[in-house]
């Protein structure tokens, strides 16, 4: 299935000291269609949500979330991590159909 990336915004420092705890904030543009609504013709609008979000820092999962229809449209998450070595931080949002949006940032340890 072709991936259709959604616009995202990631806020995190580009550099940090080893052992620091840094805050990471993420947003993804997604309607989070609940599956409970009906269209003008009375047909149920199919559920279309981000179901899973995972953040890896040097291949280790530092934060993950299973998300349901009760998460607001354009899902926002803020969480933290302890700074170890320099390396990539990869963010993956997966919808119910398995389509993924993937973003990577590099954290440089000073």
């Amino acid at each position: 299935m072709a991936d259709t990336p959604h616009p995202t915004r990631i806020s995190m420092p580009a550099t940090a000291k080893r052992g620091d705890i840094i805050d990471i904030k993420t947003l993804i543009q997604h309607e989070m269609e609940t599956g409970y609504r009906r269209d003008a013709n009375g047909r149920v609008i199919p559920r279309d949500i981000v179901a899973h979000f995972e953040v890896r820092y040097l291949d280790e999962i530092i934060f993950a979330a299973d998300t349901f229809a009760g998460v607001s449209a354009n899902p926002y998450f803020a969480f933290s991590t302890i700074v170890g070595d320099s390396g990539p931080v990869t963010f993956t949002w997966t919808d119910l159909a398995g389509r993924k949006t993937v973003e990577t940032r590099t954290l440089t340890v000073t």
């Binding site: 616009p7 915004r9 904030k25 947003l27 543009q29 449209a73 354009n74």
Partner: peptide
């Protein structure tokens, strides 16, 4: 907070 303001997704676009 620009990191939390969902409107910033549109700004990015």
């Amino acid at each position: 907070d620009d990191g939390a303001n969902p409107a910033m997704l549109w700004v990015g676009q």
